[in-house]
Amino acid sequence: MKNFFKLFNIEEKFNIDLVDLESKYLNFQNLHHPDKTSNKSLKKSLDFNEGYQVLNDDFLRACHLLQLQDIDILNDEKALKPDKSMLMEILELQEHVEQITQKNAIEIFQKNLKNTITDLINDFNHYYTHQEYKVAGQFLVKAKYLKKTLADLKIKKQKLL
């Protein structure tokens, strides 16, 4: 498992300085991008692109922290099974989303969902810092489903326009 925190030489924790991350990323690319170096190996440029994509996104960064604890909810469906009540909740939410047709209502719903996801990630961070990785992971699994719903809403809204 790659450790992107090590790659960027930053501390392995959830709250990081995104401005510092961006400037590090751009500096690295200036040195290692195939357009800037005669070195034929793409490896470094690839790693920095992937690493930046992960660390720059709250949800993906949280998932990466869990990956480093051997719980990979992004790639391994069985890493943490969502409990049934959570799945039911998601299905109900999906049904609710189906009924929304007004642009304004969609936007309010999107905003609420985004806030909920932020809360879930904060909850994750709380348990993560207390090293309760499996509990922390459950919050991320839920966030993963909500992000899917959010994506559906976006498509729905764009269709309205």
Partner: peptide, 11 residues
């Protein structure tokens, strides 16, 4: 909209 070059591996 992923920055290229990029490489991803999945098992």
């Amino acid at each position: 909209n992923s920055t290229i070059p990029i490489s991803k591996t999945k098992e």
